[in-house]
Amino acid sequence: MELFKSETNFDFMAWRKPSLVISAILCLLSLAIIFGRGLDYSMDFEGGVMIEVKYEKSAEIADIRNALEAGGLKSAVVQSLGTATEYSIRIKPEDAHVGAAAAEAPKPEADKAAPAEAAKPESAGKTETDKIAAEVLKALKVSRADASIKRSDFVGSSVGEELREQGLVAVLFVILGIMVYLWMRFEWRFAVAAVASEIHDTLITVGIFALTAREFDLPALAAVLSVVGYSINDKVVVFDRVREIFRSSRKGEPYEILNRSINSTMSRTIMTGLTTSLAVGTLYFVGGPALENFGLIMLIGIAVGTLSSIFFANPILLWLGVSKQDLMPRSKEDPELARRP
């Protein structure tokens, strides 16, 4: 099945300069949004209260969310604990109109010599957690009298900070691994173009997500990593076609061959994007609040990645000066190979 005929020869590379300028502007705007406005981190990264509730009879997650929203706890995250009667509720202290600063207040120097005084912040934190748990239970009992609290714990922001750092390290590690792989598989120009495309796609995707003012949680982080993997997959297909056409053509300028590569993979690029969007679109529209962020980021990333495969990656290759000599197989008479044991 082909959406575009194999002999199609649309001149995509003619748009390389405007597309690179637009991409640079979008990347700068995304950086300004991410570091200026910032991401609205969820309790996964900011800390908060984890409450486990139990019902005598089965309950629905939607009903629990509705009860919490009616009680003013609109940002609470509800998840099943494996049964229809036990659920976990995660909520930020400020969303419950209760401050949790006392739970993480630094201990004064004078308190180090007084154990009784040093224990006060911990007691205060426990009190604030109990207040939030009581507020949650009150909201739940309005609709279901059989609700009860199994336990409640406070998660400090230090845990969330560690998760943020590990998430950033994971993204950088993935991009570095992709660069090394492409350097070995193709040639250094392809590695540079691929990494530039990955940074481009990730920045713009996260920047657009930040504009939605949604909470950035662990599923959102997983989606960002998935976008990196999805995006590079499409670039590898296009790059492989570039190498194939370079090697099989006796004549042809890089400009022409890059255009032919984009045109010959266009059907595959669009069809892959559409079919993947159907899957992640289902997560966004009917997956519930726990999966909405994952689906939304994937939808944004697929659109951005598809466009960058056409208007960004190959123009970068042309700008770097890719040529047929760089992609031809090395002969056994190559001096570099001859020196190897």
Rank of each mutant, 00 (worst) to 15 (best):
Q325V: 03
A279G: 12
N263E: 04
I25A: 14
G252S: 06
A223F: 07
S226V: 07
S23W: 09
L20A: 13
F312D: 02
T275P: 09
V286R: 09
G38D: 04
F311A: 12
A84V: 00
E7M: 08
A84D: 14
V227H: 04
L39R: 03
L283M: 13
F285D: 01
D146P: 08
D130E: 15
M298G: 10
R250T: 12
P93A: 12
S158A: 13
S23L: 11
A62R: 10
L26H: 02
S123P: 00
S123L: 14
K141H: 08
A194L: 11
S323R: 10
I300Y: 01
S75Q: 13
V169A: 13
S152K: 01
S331L: 12
A124E: 15
A116G: 11
F173I: 14
S75G: 06
A210E: 00
E187D: 11
P315N: 12
V322T: 05
N259T: 11
T127H: 13
K57Q: 14
A102G: 13
V236S: 07
E128G: 04
G48S: 10
R339N: 12
I199Q: 02
A222G: 13
S264T: 13
G295E: 09
V180R: 01
L140I: 04
A119F: 10
R250P: 02
D111G: 03
I302Q: 03
E198Q: 15
D234W: 01
V171L: 15
M13C: 02
D44L: 06
D334R: 03
I300L: 11
L218A: 08
D326K: 05
A290D: 08
A145S: 15
L31Q: 05
V180K: 03
V136I: 13
A194K: 05
F216E: 02
P121F: 03
A145N: 11
E187S: 10
A113F: 10
L291V: 06
G207Y: 01
W319L: 13
P93R: 01
V21G: 09
R90N: 10
N293G: 15
S249P: 01
A84Y: 04
G287S: 07
I64N: 01
W15Q: 08
E7G: 09
G48R: 00
S267E: 10
R340E: 13
M13Y: 05
N263M: 09
A119R: 11
L26C: 14
V236I: 15
L81A: 11
G156H: 05
G273Y: 02
V53A: 12
L26R: 03
S148H: 03
M271V: 13
S23C: 10
L163R: 09
A76V: 02
K324W: 05
G177H: 05
L168V: 14
V304Y: 00
L29C: 14
A145L: 09
G38V: 07
A170V: 06
A101T: 08
L278Q: 03
V174G: 14
S331R: 11
W183S: 14
A105T: 07
F294L: 12
V238H: 06
T212S: 15
M13D: 00
G301L: 11
E46F: 01
W188I: 09
